Amino acid sequence: MTDAAAPPPRDPGLQPERTALSWTRTALVVAVNALLALRTGLVQGEPWLVVVGAVLFATAGAVGAAGSVRRRELDAGSFAPAPWLMAAVAVATVASAAAGVATIAVGAP
């Protein structure tokens, strides 16, 4: 008779590293869109774009902080992110994309 052996520990490979890098890239993209919104708002005289840029900078910082926390969680072996965190980052990404589109629309002749 053989003992029921426990399943071997999960080998994540490079997946945690790729996930951590994706959080960094997302924060960087949000920050770049914040710069674009700020520049367009200041050059075109659109104060609402300056506000959007400032909010996006704060959002980029929050995404970067969440990525740092997530990296520590991945190092500790927690592979499933919190659903609210994923929803918040999705909203930040969509807001960043919308700000990018707005800067193009305002800057177009």
Rank of each mutant, 00 (worst) to 15 (best):
D75M: 15
A82K: 07
R72S: 15
A31F: 12
L85C: 10
L38I: 09
V43H: 12
L85F: 04
A82M: 07
G77Q: 05
W23P: 04
D11F: 05
A102M: 14
R18I: 03
A98H: 06
A80L: 14
A58S: 11
E46G: 02
G77Y: 09
E46H: 10
V91T: 07
Q15P: 00
G100Y: 00
A102T: 07
V69T: 15
G53K: 03
P8R: 03
V94C: 01
V89D: 01
V106Q: 02
G13A: 05
T103W: 08
A62C: 10
R70T: 02
G61I: 09
A31G: 09
P109Q: 14
V55N: 06
S96G: 12
L85A: 12
F79Y: 12
P8D: 07
L49S: 05
P109I: 00
A82N: 14
G77M: 07
L49D: 05
P47L: 15
R10F: 15
W84Y: 08
A90S: 11
L35K: 04
E46T: 09
R72C: 05
P81V: 00
T19K: 08
L56S: 07
V32Y: 02
G45R: 06
L36D: 13
E46F: 03
R71T: 15
T103V: 14
A37M: 10
A98Y: 04
S22A: 15
G77N: 06
T93M: 04
R18T: 02
A20K: 09
T93A: 14
L74A: 14
Q15F: 03
A31C: 03
A62E: 01
V106D: 06
A95H: 07
A58P: 01
G67Q: 06
L85R: 01
P109D: 07
G13S: 11
A102E: 08
V51Q: 10
M86E: 14
P83A: 11
M86S: 14
G64E: 00
G100K: 08
G61C: 06
R70D: 04
P9R: 09
V30M: 09
A62Y: 01
L21R: 14
A65I: 07
A80G: 11
L74N: 01
P12W: 01
T59C: 08
